[in-house]
């Protein structure tokens, strides 16, 4: 190699790293949503043991910091005989951590569906399955989309941590550029712009999803709502 690498020469490397970043992001987001729904429903179960298990899992994964969980899955778990593939460890850590936060979002949104809606469904003799799928969920989904979007973005913003468990993600490629003597200021700014653009694209898609979900309820939103930016809400206190 002659001289330090230029930013343009490094773009193929960055794209390769971004592939891994996005792979983990997408898989972890899927796991997160699945866990959020399961734990969220469990947390409002009438049976004490079910609710108890959900609460313990939720509080445990919210309370023990994400970077520690990630390193634990990759470095500590092999010590008791489970060697996880790095990608899998990343998906598991991000999915479990944000799934625990998402469970509170799901629980809060379902609880926010007005009581008379439940009673009306019962009065109409709908089964409990029909009540959930035809009455409660269609109204709860638009309520949970903004908070879920915040979590999606937070999950995505945590992915540079993957470089710490040997995954060749976009951050690792940025680091390689610095070690090769490239201009680190330009590289970090570029990485931030990449994250910024993707985060905004996700927000735009979630605004579309929210409008579509509201349309089903007969609430029409203007075109302006598509370009709304996020309104972050602290996730800690349960609604």
């Amino acid at each position: 190699m002659d001289g330090p690498p230029g930013l343009i020469d490094w773009i193929p490397n960055l794209l390769r790293g971004l592939g891994n970043t996005m792979l983990v992001t997408v898989l972890a987001t899927i796991l997160m949503v699945v866990l959020a729904v399961i734990l969220g429903l469990m947390a409002r179960s009438r049976r004490m043991p079910v609710r108890g298990v959900a609460r313990v899992v939720i509080e445990f994964f919210r309370g023990t910091s994400l970077p520690i969980q990630l390193l634990w899955f990759y470095f500590a778990l092999p010590m008791v005989g489970f060697q996880l593939n790095a990608i899998f460890a990343g998906v598991l850590a991000f999915g479990l951590n944000y799934g625990a936060y998402g469970a509170e979002v799901v629980r809060g949104a379902i609880n926010a569906v007005p009581r008379p809606q439940w009673e009306a469904a019962t009065a109409l003799n709908l089964s409990s399955w029909q009540r959930m799928t035809r009455v409660v969920w269609p109204q709860a989904i638009p309520l949970m989309i903004p908070a879920m979007n915040n979590l999606f973005i937070q999950l995505f913003k945590s992915t540079p941590l993957l470089f710490a468990i040997t995954i060749i993600d976009v951050m690792q490629m940025g680091e390689a550029f610095r070690f090769a003597g490239g201009n680190s200021t330009a590289m970090y700014l570029l990485l931030m712009v990449v994250y910024f653009v993707i985060a905004y694209a996700v927000t735009f898609l979630m605004n579309l999803a929210e409008a579509a979900a509201k349309k089903r309820l007969g609430q029409h939103e203007g075109v302006r709502s598509m370009f709304r930016t996020r309104k972050p809400v602290p996730q800690e206190v349960t609604p």
């Binding site: 913003k157 951050m171 940025g174 680190s184 970090y188 994250y195």
Partner: peptide
């Protein structure tokens, strides 16, 4: 708000 904390820290520390 839309960029990762880790990259911000690296920017401050290494750049």
């Amino acid at each position: 708000r839309s960029t990762p904390l880790l990259i911000q820290l690296f920017f401050l520390f290494y750049a």
